[in-house]
Design a protein around this nucleic acid. Structure first.
Length: 940
RNA sequence: GGGUCUAUAGCUCAGUUGGUCAGAGCGCACCCCUGAUAAGGGUGAGGCCGGUGGUUCAAAUCCACCUAGACCCA
């Protein structure tokens, strides 16, 4: 009998599932989108809109994607999608970086070295195939994340067209006068037999010899002229300290700091010159206790004096350099321009020879006196032996320190001067232009500017040569005698590029100089080096942005991890300046690295790695996307199981809010049931107003790329304004009023507007869920997918004409919260269970207050619906009884258990329950809703 | 060692130019509901704002140093 009336209620109902089951259902949705070709359709839709170009930084085509890749692509996707909803034509062309050493090494593992066990052409073909496989694997994972893009037509740096354009870009840099051939010390891996880019160098601990060596003065008389007090007994030597004994054969000078104080000390048998600040540590190391300081002077007094090389018959000068410090050593620096960057620079200043006695295999060249043929790594003890024999070794120890290693082989690198191609930062003002261009770019966060500025300011010339097989060739011809570029270089480059367009980079390796140069061929060499892969990806602004019809130069946004200030941001900037004098991007966004819950780097050994594939296969891509969106990406991004669990909690709340809204729109058809804004009930107008405010914040946050604020904002809205207030309060109206009544349709109209707005807020982040909601949204839709729409414009704000102002609502809800506390006290005391068991009496100042200015009086009888209690009674404060609680200044509340019977239909306790013979269990309001013309609501 | 950053409740984040700024949501505990139910509502307990010194009438908010962490470089 009690359940008889349940069928007279309009209970929520929806096929939209409470649980997302994302891991299971997302793949099906992806398939559907792919079948429908939504990316291609979107391009048609967006045609003619203003363009927004986000240029993809290409991941390297090797290995499974990790969480950092996922973060990067998801952030890009959020931007592209939000810009689409903002009315832009925002294409997304993903790319891959395909050439280079890591792929070559993978292929070497299978085939052996090119030119050794396998023909170079076969080898390159294998590299190409390997890269293509890797791309397929990565693409599959990227798509699974819900990232929308032109996946069937991505850009690849190994595409023939792109390879050709890379060569053309090199040509432009050459013709613009930035190319430079030089012998410079570069990081050299003896295992690779190649120079390494800075990005290919890793630092790791290594134990080295640490030796102090005597450089005895060549002509003591000359020294004493400058420094008469240095007269004494025994040989006079300058002491140098080095951790690379094998570089001594290439020594060309000893550097002192011009402003540091140096002393000559007399020991038992000799005189030594070192920096005063380091004297104590040197003597201690050499175990010399007896000493007297004979002389003292600054380094600049000694410039140009000659020293005897410790084992070769040559004299080397004392030179000056600010790079000499007192951090370690002796304050006198052994200088071998062929083996060190700083040595090279200072050597340039003094015109020192760049002697490089070491071959590409890491062995001393055959003409090297004493050490011919020895490997540098093994020659150290021999050098020590020679030094000892000649009495030049003051002290030898072992030292553990951080030392550069090859990122692939993990072997220690050497610095070795070799002929290399460089993009010069100075020769034609590239550095200056780049620094100027940096000023015109917007860097987000703003410290990105200082970071790249500092790096560009200080970086050395860009060494673009690699002695490798799988790379775009440095397609140049140089004169055999003079080393000059061929005068027709521009035309030659274009001719080569055209061949590469047809056949790929093999075209260059197959080419004989005669084919292009004719008779000149005898005088010219074909350069055999390949390009640094950073050059490949760096010039995609030309090979991709300019080349593709759907894109354009410059891009609006580049977005990568903070490591790319040295990498892609910089290689792109330098190459764009070098080719066309303009930055390739207007805005550069940076995201931090992903770290674990403790803020520490992820590593296999720590076991704290979060794999994106694992997340999508368990929680779903939308959870991963929501995590990305909830995290402030401008700093380190923490992920852990707990964090993902919290994210999944937030997701469920958002999903269920949407589900409940849908469930209440079960019988709603906007075409016939939509209530005009002006006719909606005040509470419903308030809810739409709140949504409008949220939308303002959400759109601003998308605009400023502050996605984590969106996640917070939307969740708060779902929880507070909707869950706690609007949805809870309107349940009564939704369920108990006549289905087609204005009161109910008004609430549904608000829900419909809110859902329409919300589904779009969510779409850039929760793409799967948003589309799912969209499919369930009632009414004829203008578009099949959220993606094809734009931000919802059906929201509105409260205005002066509203019966209750925004401020009045705020007051009512603040009071409601205070009354909730009172209800809770009574509930805990066991007097009531649900709020509907209670009635509330409010005592406050009423005398002299106009009804029009009193929100409580205006709401009147309907206040009980706002408070979700069975009754509300308003009295003037003069009548306040003893047991009322003052919740606000001069506002007292008393909560009592209702003494009336409970209506079995609406659950309110009402005096009139039982007064109707036909329906003894119902209140009058319910009877009116069942049999009459239906109740009318004014406010809530 | 140098450069660029970060450090607010268990978690994710707000805290504009220093003065109700110690906040929100989640989680947690407890209560209620059973007509959003592997849901929903309510109440509550959690932070000396990484640490130490300064500047100031006043600092989470400015300065210095330290600690921990991240990226880049040597």
């Amino acid at each position: 009998m009690m359940t008889d009336y349940k069928h007279t209620l309009n209970l929520p109902n929806t096929p939209f599932p409470m649980r997302g089951d994302l891991a299971k259902r997302e793949p099906g949705m992806l398939q559907e989108w792919e079948n429908r070709q939504i990316y291609q359709q979107l391009r048609t839709h967006a045609q003619g809109r203003p363009k927004f170009i986000l240029h993809d930084g290409p991941p390297y085509a090797n290995g499974a994607i990790h969480i950092g890749h996922a973060v990067n692509k998801i952030l890009k996707d959020i931007i592209v999608k939000s810009k689409t909803l903002s009315g832009f034509d925002a294409p997304y062309v993903p790319g891959w970086d395909c050439h280079g050493l890591p792929i070559e090494l993978k292929v070497e593992e299978k085939l052996g070295k090119a030119g050794d066990k396998v023909d170079a052409f076969v080898f390159r073909k294998a590299c190409r195939e390997y890269a293509a496989e890797q791309i397929d694997l990565q693409r599959k994972d990227f798509k699974r994340l819900g990232v929308l893009g032109d996946w069937e037509n991505p850009y690849l740096t190994m595409a023939f067209q792109t390879e050709a354009d890379i060569v053309r870009a090199l040509g432009r840099i050459a013709t613009n006068g930035h190319l430079h051939k030089g012998a410079k010390p570069v990081h050299w891996c003896t295992d690779c037999g190649s120079a390494l880019a800075e990005a290919e160098v890793e630092y790791a601990d290594k134990t080295s010899f640490s030796i102090d060596v005597r450089f005895t003065v060549a002509d003591e008389a000359e020294w004493l002229q400058r420094l008469p007090e240095a007269a004494g007994q025994g040989e006079l030597s300058v002491v140098i300290w080095t951790t690379t004994p094998w570089t001594l054969p290439a020594n060309q000078a000893v550097a002192l700091n011009p402003t540091l104080d140096y002393v000559v000390v007399q020991t038992l048998s000799e005189r030594l010159l070192v920096a005063e600040a380091l004297l104590a540590s040197v003597l201690q190391r050499a175990e010399m206790t007896e000493h007297t300081v004979l002389a003292r002077c600054t380094g600049d007094k000694l410039e140009g004096l000659l020293l005897q090389h410790p084992f070769y018959a040559r004299q080397v000068p004392v030179i000056l350099g600010d790079h000499v410090t007192t951090e370690a050593g002796t304050g006198a620096v052994h200088t071998a321009p062929g083996h060190g960057q700083e040595d090279f620079v200072v050597g340039l200043k003094y015109g020192l020879p760049v002697d490089n006695p070491v071959g590409g295999d890491g062995c001393f060249l055959p003409n090297t006196e004493l050490f011919a043929g020895e490997s540098v790594h093994k020659a150290n003890p021999h050098v020590l032996e020679v030094l000892t024999e000649r009495g030049k070794l003051l002290k030898a120890e072992k030292l553990r320190h951080s030392y550069p290693h090859c990122w692939r082989h993990k072997t220690p690198l050497i610095f070795r001067a070799t002929p290399q191609w460089f993009i010069s930062l100075e020769q034609n003002g590239l550095r200056k232009q780049a620094l100027e261009a940096i000023q015109g770019v917007k860097w987000i966060p703003d410290w990105g500017k200082a970071r790249i500025e500092g790096m560009v300011q200080n970086r050395p010339d860009w060494c673009i040569s690699r002695q490798r097989n799988w790379g775009v060739p440095i397609a140049l011809f140089i004169h055999k005698e003079t080393g000059e570029l061929h005068p027709q270089t521009a035309a030659l480059i274009e001719a080569v590029a055209q061949r590469i367009e047809q056949e790929g980079i093999d075209a260059w390796f197959r080419l004989t100089p005669e084919e292009l140069l004719g008779k000149d061929a005898v005088d010219y060499d074909k350069v055999g080096d390949t390009l640094d892969v950073w050059f490949d990806s760096g010039v995609t602004h030309a090979a991709v942005l300019e080349r593709r019809a759907d894109l354009r130069f410059p891009a609006d946004v580049y977005l990568e991890g903070s490591d790319q200030h040295r990498g892609w941001f910089q290689s792109s900037l330098l190459s764009a300046i070098g080719t066309r004098g303009e930055a390739p991007y207007r805005t550069v966004l940076t995201h931090g690295f992903t770290v674990d819950g403790k803020g520490e780097k992820m590593s296999k050994s720590k076991g704290n790695i979060v794999a994106p594939q694992k997340v999508t296969d368990s929680l779903g891509a939308d959870i991963l996307r929501l995590w990305v969106a909830s995290t402030d990406y401008s700093r380190e991004m923490s992920v852990s199981d707990e964090i993902l669990k919290r994210t999944a909690d937030a997701y469920r709340r958002i999903r269920n809010t949407a589900r409940f809204l849908l469930a209440n729109l079960n019988d709603f058809d906007p075409a016939t049931d939509l209530v005009a804004a002006a006719d909606m009930l005040p509470l419903d107008r308030w809810a739409v107003d709140q949504a409008a405010q949220v939308q303002d914040k959400v759109l601003a946050a998308y605009d400023n790329f502050h996605f984590h604020l969106i996640a917070q904002e939307v969740l708060n809205f779902c929880t507070v304004e909707l869950g706690s207030l609007f949805l809870d309060i309107t349940k009564d109206r939704q369920y108990t009023m006549q289905a087609g009544s204005r009161g109910r349709r008004s609430a549904q109209t608000a829900a419909w507007h809110i859902l329409n707005a919300m589904v779009r807020w969510l779409y850039p982040v929760l793409s799967f869920t948003a589309e799912e909601i969209w499919q369930s949204l009632p009414g004829e839709k203008s578009q099949d997918f959220v993606l094809f729409t734009q931000w919802y414009d059906g929201l509105f704000r409260l205005d002066e004409a509203d019966k209750l102002s925004a401020g009045e609502w705020s007051y009512v809800f603040a009071l409601r919260e205070l009354i909730s506390k009172q209800l809770e006290d009574v509930r805990v005391a066991g007097q009531i269970g649900a709020g509907l068991d209670a009635e509330v009496v409010i005592y406050y100042r009423q005398v002299g207050v106009e009804v029009n200015h009193d929100p409580l009086l205006k709401l009147g009888e309907e206040l009980r619906f706002v408070l979700i209690t069975s009754g509300v009674h308003l009295h003037d404060v003069v009548d306040v009884p003893e047991d009322a609680v003052e919740v606000l200044d001069q506002v007292f509340v008393r909560v009592v258990r209702s003494k009336h019977g409970k209506c079995t239909r609406c659950w309110h306790h009402r005096e009139d329950v039982g007064s109707h013979a036909q329906h003894p269990e119902l209140c009058g309001r319910c009877i009116e809703n069942i049999e009459g013309t239906g109740e009318v609501r004014q406010y809530a």
